[in-house]
Design a protein around this nucleic acid. Sequence first.
DNA 1: GTTCCAATTGGAA
DNA 2: GTTCCAATTGGAA
Lengths: 196, 196
Amino acid sequence: MMSAMEIDKVLSMHNYAKKESFDTIDHVDKPPEKVVNTYQESEMMFQGNKSTDTSDDFMWYNHKLKKAVMALRLTADDKANSASNNSVPIPSVTPRESIKSDIMRMKYTIAVRRLLNLKFTKEELATHSQTGKESPAFIGVKARKPQLDPVRVGDIRLHVAKKYNIDTSLVNKAITVALADARKTKKRKIEKEDTD
Amino acid sequence: MMSAMEIDKVLSMHNYAKKESFDTIDHVDKPPEKVVNTYQESEMMFQGNKSTDTSDDFMWYNHKLKKAVMALRLTADDKANSASNNSVPIPSVTPRESIKSDIMRMKYTIAVRRLLNLKFTKEELATHSQTGKESPAFIGVKARKPQLDPVRVGDIRLHVAKKYNIDTSLVNKAITVALADARKTKKRKIEKEDTD
DNA sequence: GTTCCAATTGGAA
DNA sequence: GTTCCAATTGGAA
């Protein structure tokens, strides 16, 4: 059984790595939950972030804060002689549930793929199907593939559905597509080797 | 161009007609936004509902209220002699956004089917595909079907995606499945006629 | 190189 | 009778 903490860690690391997905959040039209107004304030919060928290909220918050501080460091020199240094605005940081939900919804398919790659070998993914059943469109034509270990798959399915608050049918769809892609990747690799 | 009001009307009527989908909402673990505590209170609200509002929220609220009043009328006689008549509890009614969202999310596929049936004939649905492209799995094997009028389809797609706050890819999927089902329904009908 | 997608099918729910 | 689903494919993004 995969622990929730383990899942969270994998997914948080992924989300943090994909910075561009966070950058679009600035445009979301929501009142900020927490606003840092000055360079001094943001620098303090930035320096103070020694937490080991790896949650999406924290990672995202820290990413935004870091970005804001970097931006302000550039302008801080220019304003060194100014007494109004105290009022330099930085972007607001809004780790609200609704926004978090939007981030998550965009990326559950990637989470599925990362977890599949974590729990199965490429060979397993390329040679198994989710149900072990024949394609209804190719009965008697295409050989059935054995079923992926339902325990590990079920674990991924439930955790992703819960974490992203989506129906398991969506997770199943993502798994099916990921397995089809794994098969194609292997096929292409073999074809390339045969050519060489 | 289909008006938003027209869409709302179709979908609201549908949701109200499917009473069983509302009945499950009682079990949602959310604090009530509005609670009616006594028979007199609920009867007054029930009688007072002469609104022409056809929104999902109102229709649902009225449905729940009506149900609660009906239930209470049965027990009211038993309690006629009781001075504690004033404290008969009835189910709470909670038309909150989050719950409404859950109702909606469960049913967007049905909305798609109703709107398709409203804007296209059964024959069109049975003989056209969404893209007009061949199935990648049956290239050169199955003849391509002509594309469903993209203007009407696009209208449905955008309105459903907006109303249910879901990605258009989900709406597309629902359309594809609905068209496949329409084709099968026609096919079965013809087979039955040939048998007769 | 990776991810997503629609058309098709028979059967499950 | 209606609705939903997964396996397969080639190609688009």
